[in-house]
């Protein structure tokens, strides 16, 4: 006899081998909260949006940013900020659109694809922010070098001491290290959080894809 047929016979035979939950027990369950990965992705994504918006607001209010106002930097920074907000709105829209399409009643493959799509939108948003961070830093540095009186004074002082090169090198290295550390920590965080959360989904999605090759 076919092994699976033997199994099937047993599988469909006994109904009383399973626990029998009562109406009330089931009712209590529907009042509980889901702990599905979709919910977690949603929460983490929202936190990411909040985090990046918060960072940009925080940077705007710092002393050094206020000093920028004196440098006639509006022509550069206002468009930069506007682009930032437009892109935030765009990603937010995509994210919610994707999120809405996730449905447990889709077939397994479509469901997985929709979840991965939501995740991808947020990934792109994070990538955008990292690039944005690097570009902003470069622009800020250009302004610092050219317009910031305090900075220029420090450069002049260093030049007078014959240490101009050392000053520039140290400065650039410090900025680079800060950027690399910041980006590294963020990437590590994403890798850990999403890696753990999506490990199973990725594995099963690959398995399904393999089936359809």
């Amino acid at each position: 006899m076919d092994e699976l047929e033997l199994l099937k016979k047993d599988w469909n035979k006994e109904d009383n081998k399973y626990p029998k939950l009562t109406y009330n027990e089931i009712y209590k369950m529907i009042l509980k909260r889901s702990s599905s990965i979709v919910k977690w992705i949603f929460i983490i994504s929202l936190l990411e949006f909040i985090f990046w918006t918060f960072i940009s607001l925080l940077l705007k209010d710092t002393e050094s940013m206020k000093r920028f106002d004196q440098f006639n930097s509006d022509a550069v920074f206002i468009p930069l900020m506007a682009i930032g907000y437009v892109i935030l709105a765009y990603f937010f829209y995509c994210f919610f659109k994707n999120y809405k399409t996730i449905s447990a009643t889709d077939n397994a493959k479509v469901l997985m694809e929709n979840i991965l799509k939501t995740r991808k939108t947020v990934k792109q948003y994070v990538a955008f922010n990292l690039i944005y961070l690097v570009i902003s830093t470069i622009i800020i540095l250009i302004f610092e070098f050219n317009k910031d009186s305090i900075f220029i004074e420090q450069v002049n002082q260093a030049t007078a001491n014959g240490q101009a090169l050392k000053f520039y090198v140290l400065f650039i290295i410090t900025v680079l290290i800060l950027l690399v550390v910041a980006i590294g920590v963020l990437l590590l965080f994403y890798w850990a959080v999403y890696g753990l959360l999506l490990k199973r989904l990725n594995r099963n999605y690959k398995e399904l894809q393999k089936l359809d090759e």
């Binding site: 699976l4 199994l7 099937k8 599988w11 469909n12 889709d106 077939n107 397994a108 493959k109 479509v110 199973r200 594995r203 099963n204 398995e207 399904l208 089936l211 359809d212």
Partner: peptide
């Protein structure tokens, strides 16, 4: 078995035909 194989076996044990199995899983 892996998760996907389990799903296929489950549907098979539940006497589902291949049309329904393929529709549920999203494979041909």
């Amino acid at each position: 078995l892996n998760d996907i194989d389990k799903a296929l076996v489950f549907l098979y044990l539940e006497d589902k035909d291949y049309t329904e199995i393929s529709e549920t899983m999203g494979i041909s």
